[in-house]
């Protein structure tokens, strides 16, 4: 494990109108570890990762990647750093088929501005195979016709297929059955063991204790605790989620 974090956030805040979704959050994760991010509904987990992914900028705070200060202005910047996100709301285009979704925004091309469908399809099938996603009838079906679990698998595979260094998963198992949850968790562990950084958001502490190395707890937009998974208990984490000590009053604008 590298001694400097793969990703480090220092004092990031984000406000939506009257809602202070994040205030002065410090956060870090290392290569080769699964960092779980937990917190109640509305705690700011999704907001945190959308900021990392460049969906919108943080209002303040700094981002360090690999020890270097970086600015992330859009999804392309995040992708260029090797950051890939699987969103809670999936972010698949229902009308496009599996292959098109897997390569969306990063299509392979050949001469005359043409899409290289054959090699995209081949790589898509290979990636799905390597993740043991075998329930698909065809990779040329529109995503709309897939089950929730299949869609989630596609979304995970999409993030994995790129040569990513940090994969962020926002509730990847929320809609899955037992077997598919198992597969996704195995996959999450495998990614970290390959040396990638993994941030896993989940409400299921059982899942988290199974795969996570460390756990960061957010509450009302603030970081209230950070645990090493092997040195804590579910009770302790639940307590932090529901009653962790806030450093300042939520909703109040934080002044320097």
């Amino acid at each position: 494990m590298a001694d400097h974090p793969l990703l480090e956030l220092r004092g990031v805040s984000k406000r939506f109108g009257a809602v202070q979704a994040l205030s002065k959050v410090d956060f870090e994760t290392r290569a080769g570890e699964v960092m779980a991010l937990v917190g109640d509904n509305g705690a700011g987990k999704s907001t945190l990762i959308k900021g990392i992914a460049g969906i919108y900028p943080f209002d303040e705070g700094e981002i360090y990647f690999d020890g270097n200060k970086v600015t992330i202005h859009g999804p392309r910047d995040a992708a260029a750093l090797g950051i890939e996100v699987v969103y809670q709301d999936l972010a698949l285009a229902d009308n496009l088929d599996v292959v098109a979704n897997m390569f969306l925004g990063r299509e392979k091309k050949k001469s005359f501005w043409r899409l290289d469908e054959a090699s995209m399809e081949k790589e898509c099938v290979a990636t799905l195979d390597s993740l043991s996603v075998t329930t698909l009838r065809s990779v040329r079906l529109p995503v709309a016709s897939l089950s929730g679990g299949q869609r989630q698998a596609i979304a995970v595979a999409k993030a994995v297929m790129r040569n990513s260094r940090l994969v962020i998963l926002d509730e990847p198992t929320a809609a899955l059955g037992v077997a598919q949850t198992r597969q996704v968790l195995d996959l999450v562990r495998r990614l970290a063991d390959k040396g990638l950084g993994v941030i896993l958001i989940s409400h299921n502490l059982h899942d988290i204790f199974e795969v996570a190395d460390r756990i960061t707890v957010l509450r009302l937009g603030q970081k209230v605790a950070q645990f090493v998974a092997s040195e804590t208990t579910q009770q302790e984490v639940v307590h932090a989620i529901t009653a962790g000590t806030l450093s300042h009053v939520p909703g109040m604008v934080v002044e320097e």
Binding site: P75, A91, L92, A93
Partner: peptide, 11 residues
């Protein structure tokens, strides 16, 4: 099909 998905994909 999904403007938000397209945006997140960097389109």
């Amino acid at each position: 099909g999904n403007k938000e998905a397209a945006r997140r994909a960097g389109i």
